[in-house]
Structures are given as C-alpha cells and as structure tokens.
C-alpha cells in the first residue's frame, strides 16, 4: 500500500493542514516510509486479541452533578485572537 500525493493532500485537508508543493512531495515520501514501518504489524497474529485502548484496567469514575465553575470569560477571552460582544469571532460561515 502506497499513498499518492493526491491522497496525502486529502489527508492534509482532513486534518486542516495545507501543504506547499515541496511539502507535499516530502510528506508523501515520509508518510509512506512511516506506513512502511507500520506494515510490519501485518506479521503478527492478532485474531481474538482484545484491542487495548488504555494501559490500566480501570473504569470511568463519575462526577457528582454539581456546578463549581464560575464565570471566567473575561480572563479566557483576554487570550483570544478575535472577540466581539463577548463572542469568539471567525470569518462568516455560510450554512
């Protein structure tokens, strides 16, 4: 399995990254090399093996339904790139 430049460019878009022509070339090469490494996994028999998403066999702890947060919007918005009327602003989105 080998990725084409077109596929890499689609993957980049999926991750909202844009690549210049030379970056696209380099990344296609790199991604294929890394996926080549991943191909080694094909050699392992994993039928019937449970996938391991977490290193510990713990279960989810549940939090009491209590409101403890206070309004810190001024602090949070002081580091925002663009704010107006207490809202975060982005270029107009057409739905």
């Amino acid at each position: 399995m080998s990725l084409s430049e077109q596929q890499v460019s689609q993957i980049a878009y999926l991750a909202r990254l844009s690549l210049s022509d030379s970056e696209l070339k380099d990344n296609t090469k790199d991604l294929n090399a890394i996926l080549g490494l991943a191909e080694q996994l094909g050699a392992i028999e994993t039928d019937g093996i449970e996938p391991m998403a977490h290193p510990l066999h713990m279960t989810q702890r549940l939090r009491a339904d209590v409101v403890t947060e206070v309004d810190q919007s001024e602090l949070f918005q002081s580091i925002a790139p663009n704010v107006g009327n207490h809202h975060y602003l982005v270029p107009t989105v057409i739905e």
Partner: peptide, 9 residues
C-alpha cells in the same frame, strides 16, 4: 450579529 463575522457562544 456582525457583518463579516460569525460569532461563537
């Protein structure tokens, strides 16, 4: 709310 922006709450 704004002409050129979408505002997020």
């Amino acid at each position: 709310m704004f002409n050129e922006y979408t505002a997020v709450d």
